[in-house]
Structure formats: C-alpha cells, structure tokens
Amino acid sequence: MSTQEEPVMEGLKAELRRESRRLRLDFNELKSGGFIKQTQKDLFTVRLRCPGGQVTADKLHLAADIAQRFGRGEVHLSVRQSVEIPYVHYQHFDAITEELKTVNWSVASCGPRVRVPTACAGCTYNPNGLVDTQSMCREVDRRYFGIPTGHHKFKISFSGCPIDCFRSREMDLGFQGVVEPKLVEELCTGCELCVKNCEDEALRMEGSLPVRDLDKCIWCGDCVKICPVDAMVVDRRGWLARVGGKHGKHPLFAYEVANFLSDDQAFSLIEATLGWYRSQGRGRERIGATIARLGLEQYIQEVIHPLGGEAIESPQERRRYWAEGNLYGLRGGEATRKI
C-alpha cells in the first residue's frame, strides 16, 4: 500500500465527486489527500500525516479509535513512516477528517506533490546523530508539504549521519548530517584512537599527530566522538544534499550536489529545486529523470551555484560515498535506459 498511489479511476472519480458534494468535502483535498483506493469496492486506506514518523500518544490513540470504528481495527505502518488505516468506507472520510482536526492532525498527500518528509531520530536520541533531523523534518513538512510539482511525486528525507538509515540516496531530495573535524594539536596525546576508529581510513599518524586525508573523509564525526581528550573537535556542522534518487521499477541513486549546508540553505535548496523541476521537468517524470535528460551539470549550474553553498561538482568528489562495484560507478551523468 505504502508505495502505490493514484489509483483513482474515472468512474470512481465521478462517484467521489458526487459523494463529496453530498458530504460537502473538498474534492480536490480528497484527491490530493491520503485516501488511497483499495482493491475492495468502496474501501480506502487513510494515510495519516506523520512527518519523521513521530506521532504523539494522543494521535496514536485516535488512530486506533478510528481504525476500530471505521476500519477493521488495524493499522499499517508504511515504509515512509506513515500510520495508515485500511478498510475505510469513503462515506466516513468527512467524519474522520473532522476527528483528526481535534488533535491537530490531517491525512498525508498523494499524487504529484511534495510528500510528507521522513527522518531518523537524528541527534535527539540516537548516539550516531550529528544534526537535528526531527526539527528540520517538521519544518520542511510545515513549509512544503503538499505543494504540487506539476510532474510527479517528490520525496524528501533526512538522515542524522552518513550511516544514512533514511536513505537520502533514494529520495528526490535527501539530506544527511555531516561534521568537519579539526585537530587541536596542543591537546592531542597521540593515542591513535581516532585513527583506529576512522572506518574510511582517512586518518593516519604523521609523527605523533593524526592527519586527515580530505579525499577520503566522509565527515562522520567518529574521530570527534572517540577522542578521549577532546583534541578532535567539531569545526562545522551541516547538511550534505543529494538529488535525483528514487526507487520503483527503475531505481536511481541520488547525486551528492552540495555539502555543509545550513538549515536556511537547505530550505533554499528545496525551493530552488522544486522551481527548477517545475519548469524543466516533462510530463510525469521524476526529477532524477529530468536530471538524466538535461545533465547534472545544468542542475548544478542553475540551482546549486546561485545558492552560494559548497557545491559538489565532480564524480571524483562523489567517489568517497560509493562502494566499489556499486552501480553508482557506472553512471557518468547519463542514464543507460529509460527511467
């Protein structure tokens, strides 16, 4: 259920339109909202808006209650962190929408729109987290949720660190936390713990001090976390941005396009990217296909450069993120097949 949308067929559309007039529902809201047609006649799955997968106990109680009264007493947890209530008859949409309002809740979006953003726990309670993914996710949801793209769906996700549990690589736009370490030489005891802990082999000892290889570092911050005397410290913190990923029949891995963005730069990047996609996209293609068609350079030129952030321009700079033998390596900016 979670990755299939827009199954509203013509006959059903007319029926819904009539029904929505009778129930005084906004038909457009119905279409854009998270009411997803099931195989069973007249039954829908109601997808609830859960940015970052965070749901208060109040909301959870209400979802359970709605599932019991209007569904079959069960919910489904979607791969994009939504609570979904299956087996709901469309006649109950109105009542459900009203009840959701009492806890300041609503249904999620479907169709060619900005979807509810997803996020891991980030630094709020995950020890690996480098940035506050949850706050960012809530804000992005507040600002951009449901905006029509004119072409296809648009998914945004946030991961707190390079482990990337929230698969920023598979999103139309993905953001991942990064930190830049800096050595305070006077404090360093030369214990080599940081060197041992750097899984990317970006650190080596030169004399009694660790030295970082800037071509290998992926900004995970492990060296900062391990240093017993706080000689390795955070110099700066921000977001690595990826664009053009998707799953589906022909999945694409996103390209890293900018690094160390501030929250504000990330918002600007989202806005600029949506604008670019709206004007450059064709038909029902995802932004990954638009980029494959026009070339990544054009996207970077038109979207990243004007932002003034730190652009990631070459495949060499991206290499550090790829595993050997990954299909990433096959992509020089051109898709080899229809997307």
């Binding site: 005891t189 214990c191 080599e192 713990l193 041992k196 802990n197 976390k225 391990i226 017993p228």
Partner: peptide
C-alpha cells in the same frame, strides 16, 4: 585491537567517564 578498541572507548566516553591514557 579491532572491534573492541572501536567500541569500548567510545561507549566509555559516552557514559561520561574519562580516558586518561592509551
């Protein structure tokens, strides 16, 4: 060396103890 040295010092530090020497 190895896994133990990757995990133990990090967790000890995260628990608020101080590694004085290695």
């Amino acid at each position: 060396d190895g896994e133990a040295m990757r995990n133990v010092p990090r967790n000890v530090k995260a628990d608020g103890h101080h590694i004085l020497s290695v």
